[in-house]
């Protein structure tokens, strides 16, 4: 850590440039939303909380996020362990594969699930036979949400595992611990910050997912409409107060996520 020094003119210029850039790109848009919210007073939020469709959308989003949190939390930890600690054929391929959801457009994700479960899709004949509806229904949205949020926990946990090495696990083994005891008592506690960080990112991504759930879910009001697709539909129908209100709610949640991320980082650094 450099001590607090007076910056020379060149450094001041660079600092000013960075501040201006971050202000323009990040702070200004955020401020626009805040100003708009203040201008309209509680009206924006009222538009949401008095609208059953909006509340339904919010609820659906929370349910989807909850499923992603549990599903990808569990699988993410397991997959990180497999990726970092196991040696097997195809590990390199897997390493790229697990990152792909970060680079694939949400629209493509939705499309891919449509091609599996939608009209004319691979599994359509069986699904019709069994009477299960996946596309334009809840199950499809669950799959799309799981897909887009898959890498977050995995990457954060894998990073910590790699840093950690396996000295402590070896020590546990020589002291007689079973694999399960080693995992629960030694590995998992050491992962807690990485896991927490990954879970917050998962939650944020799940709450904010738009393109994929729009394509696979169809944004049918009261059925497959999420918080984000509600905003989209409201904008299309020029219901701007409702759209801005919902955007404000989601932005507030994001700020909370941001603060939790910062809190986790501080806790982690304190224990280093």
């Amino acid at each position: 850590m450099p001590e607090r020094k007076r910056l020379n003119p060149g450094q001041k210029l660079l600092l000013a440039l960075v501040l201006a850039y971050l202000g323009l790109i990040l702070a200004l848009p955020l401020a626009a939303l805040a100003v708009r919210a203040l201008e309209s007073g509680p009206g924006m939020l009222l538009a949401i909380f008095s609208d059953p469709a909006a509340l339904e959308g919010l609820k659906l989003t929370l349910v989807l996020a909850g499923i992603a949190l549990v599903g990808n939390g569990l699988v993410g930890v397991a997959a990180a362990l497999v990726l970092v600690r196991h040696r097997f054929f195809g590990r390199g391929l897997l390493d790229t594969l697990v990152d792909l959801p970060l680079a694939v457009s949400p629209v493509m994700t939705g499309l891919a699930f449509l091609l599996l479960f939608g009209r004319g899709g691979w599994f359509e004949p069986w699904l019709t036979l069994a009477g299960i509806k996946v596309s334009f229904a809840f199950p499809g949205m669950v799959l799309a949400t799981l897909f887009v949020t898959f890498p977050f926990t995995l990457r954060e946990v894998a990073y910590v595992l790699l840093e950690l090495g396996n000295d402590e696990e070896e020590a546990a083994v020589t002291l007689g611990a079973s694999p399960w005891q080693t995992f629960l008592l030694v590995t998992l506690p050491n992962l807690r910050f990485g896991l927490g960080y990954g879970l917050v990112l998962t939650l944020a991504r799940a709450l904010g997912e738009f393109g994929a759930v729009l394509v696979i879910g169809g944004a049918i009001s009261g059925q497959t409409q999420t918080a984000t697709t509600f905003i989209y539909n409201a904008l299309e129908e020029r219901q701007t107060p409702a759209a801005y209100g919902m955007a404000l709610i989601l932005a507030t949640a994001s700020v909370l996520f941001l603060l939790s991320l910062e809190w986790i980082k501080r806790r982690r650094d304190k224990e280093k």
Partner: peptide, 14 residues
């Protein structure tokens, strides 16, 4: 049932 002491201690940090 062997006691093992590691070079870099390998203490459980938590």
């Amino acid at each position: 049932g062997v006691g093992f002491v590691f070079q870099h201690y390998a203490l459980f940090r938590h």
